[in-house]
Simulated scan of single mutants.
Amino acid sequence: MPHLDVEGAQLYYETDSHISSPALLLIHAGIANLRMWDPQVPTLAENHFVIRFDTRGYGQTTTEDVEFSNRADALDLLDHLGIQKATLIGCARGGGIAIDLAVENPDRVAGLLTIGSGPSGFPETELTSEEDDLFDQLDAAFEAGDWNTLYDLEVRLWCIGPTRNEADLDPDFVAAAYELNRMNIAHVDDRPVPIPLEPPAYDRLVDIAVPTFVMVGEQDLSAALTQYEYLLSTIPGADGATFRDSAHIPSVERPDIFELLLTGWLARHKL
């Protein structure tokens, strides 16, 4: 399987379709890995060169405990594949990386789509009581070194959502969400140190000049909902969409609706 050697790491990546087609770079959430995009890849690959990779600390990528830049890793992969410009599609943490990359290297970005993401440098927001309780449980599991519980609690917080009952959701989605995060437990001892974008993207969003689509699940955390409104109101000409019955990863929970919105947006902007 393909790996790219970069400074202090081997990045695992996958590509689909032909390099002559418009490029899409898919960046996974912090509670998942590149497998989260499996439902969309066959359709996207009909008209695009689809690139996805596991960022450091996730999936099948291996890393040393070194300082690194998520933006540089993404650019190194594009350079390795001979791609000058790509449309970035990022979920949650992956969307934050995509925003940073669009701000820092606008010449490499054709379009930007984020899901449940916020820009670097976004001010902390006050938690709801339900969110505060779940974060306390996460902290307790971390202090106890109970990694299985910790990783499952992350799914409970982000994917199920602080106000929803797991038993009310599609069991196939629930199983997929837990599996996507459990695959990352193997990286629990990884300690790479990401180099932040300076200055952060928070005050630089007005400089984004490519077609942008901002998405969020209405059952996501309150911070993600606030960040969605900020992105939508600050990035010039940004489109927006909310998923009524979804939390942090609507592309996994509502794949058909997400795919319809994504492919329509790509076609409309000729990306």
Rank of each mutant, 00 (worst) to 15 (best):
M1Y: 04
P2H: 05
P2D: 03
L4W: 00
D5S: 12
V6L: 01
G8M: 02
Q10K: 12
Q10M: 08
L11W: 01
Y12A: 10
Y13T: 09
S17Y: 02
H18L: 12
S20A: 12
S21P: 05
L24C: 04
L24A: 03
L25Q: 04
L26P: 03
H28K: 02
I31R: 02
N33Y: 09
R35V: 03
M36R: 08
M36H: 04
P42Q: 06
T43A: 14
T43C: 08
A45T: 10
A45E: 04
A45V: 14
E46K: 07
F49I: 06
I51Q: 06
F53W: 15
D54I: 09
T55L: 15
G59V: 06
Q60V: 14
T62C: 04
T62Q: 07
E64I: 00
E67G: 13
N70K: 12
A72H: 10
D73R: 07
D73Y: 13
D73T: 03
L78M: 13
L78S: 06
L81W: 11
I83V: 15
I83A: 07
T87I: 02
C91H: 04
R93P: 05
G94N: 02
G94K: 04
A98D: 04
V103L: 12
D107P: 13
R108D: 07
G111F: 00
L113C: 12
I115T: 04
I115P: 05
G116P: 10
S117V: 01
S120G: 08
G121R: 08
E124L: 01
E126I: 01
E126K: 10
S129F: 05
D136S: 14
D136W: 03
A140M: 09
A141K: 08
A144V: 10
A144Q: 04
D146Q: 12
W147V: 13
W147C: 02
T149F: 07
L153K: 11
L153I: 06
E154S: 15
W158K: 05
C159P: 07
I160N: 04
I160E: 09
R164E: 09
N165V: 15
E166I: 12
E166P: 03
D168T: 14
D168W: 09
D172A: 15
F173N: 05
V174L: 10
A177V: 11
R182D: 11
N184G: 12
I185M: 12
A186C: 08
V188N: 14
R191M: 12
P192G: 09
V193Q: 11
P194H: 11
I195M: 14
P196G: 13
L197H: 10
L197Y: 04
P200R: 04
P200D: 09
Y202L: 06
Y202I: 15
D203E: 14
D207R: 03
T212C: 12
F213L: 15
V214T: 03
V216T: 15
V216H: 10
G217L: 01
E218G: 07
D220A: 14
A223R: 13
A223G: 05
T226D: 09
Y228A: 13
L232H: 04
L232R: 09
S233G: 15
S233P: 09
T234W: 06
T234M: 05
G237R: 00
F243C: 13
R244I: 07
D245S: 10
H248Q: 15
D256S: 10
F258V: 00
L260R: 00
L261C: 01
L262H: 05
T263R: 00
H269Q: 11
L271M: 00
L271E: 07
L271P: 01
